Amino acid sequence: MNGNSPIGELLPGPAHFQVIEDPAYAATGTGEHLYVEIEKEGLTTDVVAQVLAKACGVAGHAVGFAGRKDRHGITRQWFSVHFGQESQIQAEHADRGGRFKVVAVSRHKNKIRPGHLAGNRFRLGLRLTDPDAAVTRLSSLASAGIPNRFGTQRFGFNGSTLALARAWGAGDPAAAVAICVDPSGQWKPGDPLPGGFRHPPEGLVLGALRRRPDDHAGALRAAGDQLRKLAASAAQAAIFNAVYDARAAAGILHQLRPGDLALAANGAPFLVTDGDLGDVNRRAAPGVLDVVASGPLPGTWRLRPSPAVVAEEQAWAAGTGIDWTWLGAEGRLESPGERRALVIRFRAPPVLEPDADRHWLSFSLPSGAYATEVLAAVGIAVPADRR
């Protein structure tokens, strides 16, 4: 995805991948939702949410969070628990090789929902062979904008969530269930089900199969919206990345055409016309980025580029194996959809600091952006557990 030669690597281990979530708003201190800031290591966001729900004696849907954070790091984020009480939450908790601790508590009037964050701050430990080149490349990236591609984390272990989306969307529930049961592909319908505990939504699929082994469609329904949304998001991400790669290869990441759907600095979308083309492209130039080109997250969202641009994007994304109708109204993976900026700006500029045998890279990104894409863009290798 970039033409830069390798100049280093992200060091392994959670301590070298630190994330702090910046909430979209501050809790007021009053309200029926308990707000808990958690620092976690070795655990997924979903596991922490389930532990909090059990501790407070509420259903899983009573717990909210703004976004999922990497399991392979030390990450901080806020959770909300409807009618939860501070006295019900343990200050520290260890679970299945991971741990979390409570950093702060408060209360607020509403549940934290996906997207309720301003962005994320990152502090990454690097081993660099050419620190000067890293500084130069980071400066160029700040000017040109960061590739807003989705990281491979979005596609699941070995791409299993994307494979799930393809099977589910194509109407093959048996194949979809097999991926849920065993992402490695070894298990087949009719084989004995694996034992042991599984967290939802995969655990709900297994539970349904134990009750009715041949009802694969029913097992998918038993997992609820969470599994379908995960599959849909992986499908959308694959399409977006394909469109990004095609525009980058064509040299038109910063060049808009009539019929493109652009995004203003505040995120407002607008259709580019012949009359405003010159002004739009001046504002989209590297070093300015008051306007950016957008890429598709297909769904039911009605605001779209011109039919010619949509057809072009669909052709670019044909290799993903995703049919866009799966994500539309009445599709098996129906999703609201939206447009996503192809490039983004740092919320806080990158800072590189030497520290004995390593360097620490700090920066802040808008919500939904991937730190691993920053590293890839400047030629810093990422360990396999973060790809």
Rank of each mutant, 00 (worst) to 15 (best):
L277M: 12
A384Q: 09
T300Y: 09
D276T: 14
A381N: 04
D214I: 11
V291W: 00
G328D: 08
I89A: 11
N241H: 01
Q314I: 13
A231Y: 10
L327A: 07
L253W: 01
I89Q: 06
H116K: 11
T273Y: 07
A308K: 15
D357A: 13
R332V: 13
S143Y: 00
G84K: 03
H216G: 05
T325D: 14
H116R: 08
S364N: 02
R96N: 07
A315K: 14
G97P: 00
A223D: 02
R76V: 14
W301P: 01
A250S: 09
R304H: 15
R210G: 04
P349L: 10
R212D: 13
L333A: 08
T320Q: 06
A381I: 05
A104M: 06
G98I: 04
V374Q: 07
L43I: 04
G156P: 12
F79W: 11
S364C: 05
R332A: 14
P23F: 11
A94S: 11
R154H: 07
V378E: 03
S335K: 00
P192Y: 02
A369P: 05
W360Q: 08
A377D: 14
G328P: 05
V47K: 04
A66I: 08
R211Q: 14
A170Q: 10
F363S: 00
N241E: 01
P14T: 12
F17H: 05
A26N: 05
G267W: 13
